[in-house]
Amino acid sequence: MENTLIKTVDLSKTYKVGDIEVHALKSVNITINNGEFVAIMGASGSGKSTLMNLLGCLDMPTSGEYYLDGINTSKLTKNEYANIRNQKIGFVFQGFNLLPRTTALENVELPLMYDRLEKVKNHQKQATDALIRVGLEDRMHHIPSQLSGGQQQRVALARALVNEPSLILADEPTGNLDSVTSVEVFNLFQKLNDEGITIIMVTHERDFAAFAKRIIEMRDGRVIRDAKIKDRLNAEEELKKAIAEAEIAE
């Protein structure tokens, strides 16, 4: 099964707030193959972000196992965790999480600095290429407060891409964006997925989930539905439609 990228076994996460235990994830078993594009859906508080943070190695499970690329991550040290975040995973947050007062280029260079193998010699060129991939070559020297929300999210995406990860995790990447800008971002995701990068994203809107190839639905910390998408939307076409509609409206 070398095609398997992600496999979780009874993955659980319990938060303790005072004396109260919150079971945010209860025995989640999922398998995701290389090249998939998965949308995770579910009501607020159903454990989507908790799952994403575990898959992104940003947090540790309370129990259960998480295999990434065949490696059992629960056996790893903190530093090896950091290496995985750096090498294999690109994470895109709803709130962008860019360094303030720092240019787009410097933000995108950030993961390269923490690459212990120093695969990339010319950080600036690599970061520039990533920004070109998300179509922001003319905004490289802008700082986040000088960029629109969609542009900031594209910078974050470039940062997620710069180390050429095999997996991109996006937790409500378009939660703060309007629908046209959102479609632009999904368009980028689809292109990256076409290039072979596995993408897992959380979204609240069923319309947006249709850009993915597979939907996982959660409720109360469990997976309640896991299905392939039959009539998948093409973001590029949707974008053209949206632009055409906007022109008619004028």
């Binding site: 950091a82 290496n83 750096n86 999480n97 360094l99 923490y114």
Partner: peptide, 11 residues
């Protein structure tokens, strides 16, 4: 947090 999330170690 941002630095840690892109692969910085505590050290």
């Amino acid at each position: 947090g941002i630095r840690l999330s892109v692969g910085a170690r505590a050290s």
